[in-house]
Design a protein around this nucleic acid. Structure first.
Lengths: 224, 224
DNA sequence: GTCATTGCGTTACAACTTCTAACGAACACG
DNA sequence: CGTGTTCGTTAGAAGTTGTAACGCAATGAC
């Protein structure tokens, strides 16, 4: 049951039905959020009765976990594609924003409010490591400015998350700030906290990116 | 039935029961998240039957909205207290982190994944404006460095969210970056995305705060 | 103090959810 | 052409939110 490619017509059918279930699930999530995902509603939309779906996913949580897995994979693919033509941090940032705006609920599935008891399976954290590796590549390729920060020194002693990546610790620090700052703008934007404030979130995102790239030698990150 | 203070014993009892419901709700949210909040479970814990709670909250959504309101008020109070002894951005940042770590799910209730259809009531957005005003006070009190950023120029034309606050536009930009950067670190930390990476999130938060305060004249925000 | 009104908590119920169990039918394979 | 695995079904348990109708108790007026 393992080393055959896509073989038996039953498995073919099975993967197809699983794919359609996930498709409908994404539709539901996009319009009503992950908490409102209903297996019964998906089944009815597919012309089946509720319990039929349990042949394909053991539980609602397993379906959501699978969707989270796909979301991580999608982000990793997007990152890989964006960094294909050379490790470019700016391209990575733009790709991240595009990916986030393309399906905000997918972004929240990865970076949103976690369920307190939930632990991501190992393969998901492995994908996350790959995403981080791509980001580290781009950050290590940036021109390094002079002095290391105190936090970079701390990272020198806590770099196991880099998973053997040879980036110097200032690049590690830069990668983390890249992550947290872009996520800070994106998550607030997608959550609607900028709605009605009037300014253009894209410009704030661009300003943060500029600060991340530009304050290497130049000046202030947040202006003034 | 309005302008009396806390008068009739019935209203006294009513507000007390409402308070206890919210108390139990916070307990549930802290341990299982907002989506797992169950009115029936709260009722049973209080020794009442399920539908009794509908005398006090019209629906589960109304209860959650009330909790969101309380969370906003709590953050506003924390900010006011932290800025009471002079508008100090660093004190505000520390207060924010303490407030977030004190009850992560409360933080997520304010800044976490939103329900797609949800619109916050007006008084909540008013409280949010107050929080922003406190932050603007602190940012306007910071020493201003030289040139304005392009985004600050954009903000000059889109400052209605400042609600008449006299802060110059670079301070507006600084307030926004304050918000987004600290939220970026905090939300990823509280969501557990730093778990297992080894470094100390408090140091990353401190580094971001340092960058926000220190790159006025000095150097790089993210080192390297 | 008596009495009417108001509000509270109850049970019963509808409609929904996830998920299990048992059954029948269709399909793939030897 | 059997045989067996798998799929989809219906029935049902246990949970949820929320409504409706009822009884009781406490409140406030007289």
């Amino acid at each position: 049951m393992a080393e055959t490619g896509t073989k038996t017509p039953r498995e073919r059918y099975r993967t197809q039905v699983r794919a359609e279930i996930k498709e409908r699930a994404w539709e539901q999530i996009a319009t009503a959020g992950a908490t409102a995902l209903s297996l019964n509603a998906i089944a009815k939309r597919m012309g089946m009765s509720g319990p039929a779906l349990y042949r394909y996913f053991a539980s609602r949580d397993e379906l959501i976990t699978e969707l989270i897995r796909d979301a991580y994979r999608s982000l990793a693919d997007t990152f890989r594609a964006a960094s294909g033509s050379g490790a470019d941090a700016a391209a990575l940032a733009r790709a991240l924003r595009g990916w986030a705006l393309d399906d905000p609920q997918r972004y929240f599935l990865v970076y949103g409010t976690p369920v307190p008891g939930y632990h991501a399976p190992d393969d998901v954290t492995a994908i996350a490591s790959g995403i981080m590796a791509t980001l580290l590549d781009a950050c290590a390729a940036l021109p390094a400015d002079g002095a290391a920060t105190p936090f970079a020194a701390h990272l020198e002693g806590h770099r196991q998350w880099a998973d053997g990546h040879p980036a110097p610790s200032p690049a590690l620090h830069r990668a983390l700030t890249f992550w947290t700052r872009l996520h800070g703008v994106l998550s607030l934007e997608l959550a609607g906290h900028f709605a009605g404030m009037g300014f253009d979130p894209a410009l704030l995102f661009a300003a943060e990116l500029e600060a991340l790239l530009g304050d290497l030698g130049a000046g202030s990150a947040d202006g003034g």
